[in-house]
Amino acid sequence: MTTDEIQTGLAEILEEVAGILPADVSPEKSFTDDLDVDSLSMVEVVVAAEEKFDVKIPDDEVKNLRTVGDAVAYIEKHGAAA
């Protein structure tokens, strides 16, 4: 899976879970500050990402995923397709 594909997949999850427009999703955006994803939506995003990208994202890791770019990089590094 390419970086672009992961970002697109993540945007789909954000739209489904939190109603965020895919056009608003870019690597530098912070989940909490820019996209208004609160702590509970973040849990749902992580759970959906684990399923979609076949990756484990432990609870301790979630707080390190501040931006969309952080999440894409994590999935690229740890995902099954990596």
């Binding site: 702590s39 509970l40 849990v43 992580v46 759970v47």
Partner: peptide
Amino acid sequence: GQAVFRWATT
């Protein structure tokens, strides 16, 4: 709370 939330939604 968050662990329960995650378990339930998963």
